[in-house]
Amino acid sequence: MTLFATPRTPSQAPPGLLAAVALVACLATPARADEVQVAVASNFTGAMQKIAADFEKDSGHKVLLSFGATGKFYAQIRNGAPFEVFVSADDETPARLEKEGSAVAGSRFTYAIGRLVLWSARPGYVDDRGEVLKHGNFAHLALANPRTAPYGAAAQEVLKKLGLLEALTPRIVQGENIAQTHQFVASGNAELGFVALAQVYKDGKATAGSAWVVPAGLHEPLRQDAVLLEKGRGKAGALALMNYLQGARARAVIKSYGYE
């Protein structure tokens, strides 16, 4: 750790001294600080990074974040993954983990309700009513795998409600999770795609390209639950993070990313 830190340090202190300082800093960290391992659904990546940084500063605990598809985390948790907190993209998976005894009963809560957005990296490509879906001559429409990703399932539901699913199916490309779906669109390989509002929205507006925020009535609410896992039972760090996620500061961050 100190080896890598040395060249980046702006001061001209000799490396030996820096190493010694770093070592003392490590030893000086309070003994009660926990390292919390957290599994986080891809759509919540940006918000969680911010929340975790604030939490680390406030509490002194350290947070290790893993990002990925909710279904894959389920399989890993069932097979002994060391996660203590699971921040899921849906409400079913945490409930199932709780029922199967991998999560602490009664610890579940909804931390965010997600919004789906039809997004293109090109400015002006997506109109604010989503008409482009009917008339656009795009080659690829990206969505997350509907079988495994809640945002993908919601996107499929929207297309079905609009009566476009059958017509557009040949043009659909699937990302393994919502992060990969976003990447397909951001790189221009797909002209447009359904992604999480949180991925393209910051402080009240879209960060790039053009977007149509899909009306919430077109799909089941994207209720996202967090749960304390068995590995985190009784751990101070994990419990503190669960509390922090429900606190005012975390709520503000969550809202700023476009969640409800």
Partner: peptide, 26 residues
């Protein structure tokens, strides 16, 4: 394939990707 295939049936969804899918879908 996972990174550039897009998981399209009959075009880019090969066995290895489908296995990954099945595991994700439990």
């Amino acid at each position: 394939v996972l990174m550039m295939g897009g998981n399209i049936p009959d075009r880019t969804r090969v066995v290895s990707v489908l296995i990954y899918d099945h595991v994700d879908a439990l």
